[in-house]
Amino acid sequence: MTSVEFLAWVRGPMFQIAVAIFVVGVVIRLIEIFALGRKADLSEPRGGETMPGIVTVFRRSIPDPGTFKRSPFTIVLGYLFHIGLFITILFFVPHIELFHDVLGVQWPGLPTPLVDAVAIISIFAMLAILVNRLRNPVLRFLSNGEDYVVWAATLLPLVTGYFAFHRMLFPYQTMLGLHILSVEILLILFPFTKLMHFFTSFVARWYNGAAFGRRGVQS
């Protein structure tokens, strides 16, 4: 397979396979969650569920001060790479073109040197996250193979994208192909792993906020 055949394959059939696995898997998993549902709560509510649920969906993105004080490293790194991923995925113009093609909506992009800088920050944050995971006793204890696989699958698109953009390591078509392939690996792993939190954490936050909200506490 030449680099161009490889690129054509990852931009063509392989991309569709990855998207299909991603969509089918995510939909299955979301239906599984919602189909289990909740039993109606018969206790007399003190507060509402919907609004506190929505507030928690947003509020959980901000750590409470005590937790921040106790784990600043984990939280700052988490912010850095989540925001970094958000910016590089959503505001790099070639990516916007992809979303425009698939979803039919588009938005303005950011200047590439800025996206480039963010990508570098994200890559270093990801590396620090691995160090943190290996060194922090709680994280080391909790971590299983999946955590490391997902870490690698998240880092690879950043690194290959960075290399492709800067025409490093391999000829551009090869590197671009590897970049797209790494994203496809991420998409394929998505429904099978904790990457699902991208969708389910909002559901979880809502349930949490609703459960506490019903009892009169904003969680």
């Binding site: 994280l139 909790l142 979880a204």
Partner: peptide
């Protein structure tokens, strides 16, 4: 096991922050 539990267990990313909220830890 219900919907909330399924959403919780699907969401855990093993960040370990809950440890620091627990006085036993």
């Amino acid at each position: 096991i219900d919907g909330p539990i399924a959403s919780y267990l699907s969401s855990c990313v093993h960040c370990g922050l809950c440890a620091h909220a627990c006085l036993f830890f």
